[in-house]
């Protein structure tokens, strides 16, 4: 057995190296902005149009789920007549004209045995959105990775700090 390991040890090391190089190459080669169908610019909308979060994430204060806005919300401002010369807006208009939903990728999510409520944190707990979502108003690229990972460790850390309940049944169901 030991002989066998010795014999193949070199081969194993080499193949591991090759695989890790491949992975690194693949990861760096992938453009993270490609993950969303439209390169939405939060900063632009917040600064120049003076939108606030709940203007588009309409349920953030009243429902557990904040919801990712889709064409029905975008339509409020955008029509088939473009406002800018951005090619991204043209993409949006195409969705609107064809009455097709934008296939946004959800970045922040919790497993289905966890209950997370925006209204609990935002309206009742009066937390600022940036506590979890980072400084969205500075973001020019579409959201492709979470600013803060909604893991149990991270949840508990904050609940500890703010002396909020840690009862299992208040989140797990």
């Amino acid at each position: 057995m030991r002989d066998l390991i010795k014999k193949y040890f070199k081969l194993l090391i080499i193949s591991l190296f090759v695989i890790s190089v491949l992975i690194f190459w693949a990861a760096s080669g992938a453009n993270p902005t490609n993950i969303q169908p439209i390169a939405y610019n939060h900063k632009l909308h917040i600064e120049s149009v003076e939108l606030i979060c709940s203007d588009c994430h309409i349920y953030v204060e009243s429902m557990p789920s904040a919801t990712i806005p889709n064409i029905s919300i975008c339509e409020e401002c955008h029509s088939d007549d473009p406002i800018t010369d951005s090619p991204e807006e043209l993409k949006l208009i195409k969705y609107i004209v064809e009455e097709e939903q934008i296939p946004w990728q959800q970045i922040y999510s919790v497993p289905d045995h966890v209950y997370f409520s925006h209204r609990r944190h935002v309206s009742i707990g009066e937390l600022d959105c940036s506590e979890c979502h980072g400084h969205v108003e500075e973001m020019t690229e579409p959201i492709s990775y979470p600013a803060w990972l909604p893991s149990m460790d991270n949840c508990i850390a904050c609940h500890n700090e703010l002396k909020i309940t840690k009862d299992c049944l208040s989140c797990h169901m």
């Binding site: 557990p64 209950y115 409520s117 209204r119 609990r120 309206s123 009742i124 049944l169 208040s170 169901m173």
Partner: peptide, 14 residues
């Protein structure tokens, strides 16, 4: 139905 309690509490707190 503890999941209902979460919602009821939230409604009351709101």
């Amino acid at each position: 139905c503890a999941h209902r309690l979460i919602k009821v509490k939230e409604n009351a707190d709101m």
